[in-house]
């Protein structure tokens, strides 16, 4: 491409222009995509046994609420999140731990003693005492936590991510 004719020189410059611009665009553009979506790619999983105190604090027969906090690192900040749920102690050692997070859009459900069900305040859904959906939009029963009892203390298994 010795620039023999005007036209070929123009074409040559055109090709070089496009090539170099694309190289620069890609050299900056591809890292930038990674940069922007980076938080979405981070694994933020965490799991732990959470102590909820002595077993005798939980009465037999009716659900009792509990709550705990976990902190996770988001960027350079620690975010402390609260979690809650209900323990239904059916017999001495047969326990059901339900998350209070509604499976529809994450509002917190409450135990309604009178109607013997969990009511979600957001879209008027109801869950039975085992967490099963009675009515309303939620697509699934309430989440369950695994439980264990050690030296008279109740623990639940927390898992996230």
């Amino acid at each position: 491409m010795a620039g023999s004719s005007r036209i070929s020189r123009r074409d040559f410059v055109k090709v070089v222009t496009i090539a170099l611009s694309s190289v620069m665009g890609a050299a900056l553009g591809i890292p930038v995509i990674g940069y922007l979506i980076d938080p979405a790619l981070k694994v933020q999983s965490s799991e732990a046994w959470i102590p909820l105190g002595p077993l005798e604090n939980f009465p037999l027969g009716s659900p009792k609420s509990f709550s705990f906090t976990r902190s996770s690192v988001n960027g350079w900040e620690k975010t402390v999140n609260s979690y809650g749920g209900f323990i239904l102690r059916k017999t001495e050692t047969d326990l059901l731990a339900l998350s209070s997070r509604c499976t529809h859009l994450s509002c917190s459900v409450n135990w309604d003693e009178g109607n013997n069900n969990y009511a979600c305040p957001c879209h008027a859904a109801h869950f039975g005492s085992e967490g099963e959906v009675l009515d309303g939009p939620p697509p699934a029963p309430l989440d369950r936590y695994e439980t264990k009892i050690e030296e008279g203390n109740l623990f639940i298994f927390f898992q996230k991510g």
Binding site: R9, R10, V13, K14, T17, S21, M24, A27
Partner: peptide, 21 residues
Amino acid sequence: FWPDSIYKDLLVSFALFILLI
């Protein structure tokens, strides 16, 4: 301007880009 100057401008800018990286 096109293609004579732009060509040189582009080469210099590209060199600066490489330098920055």
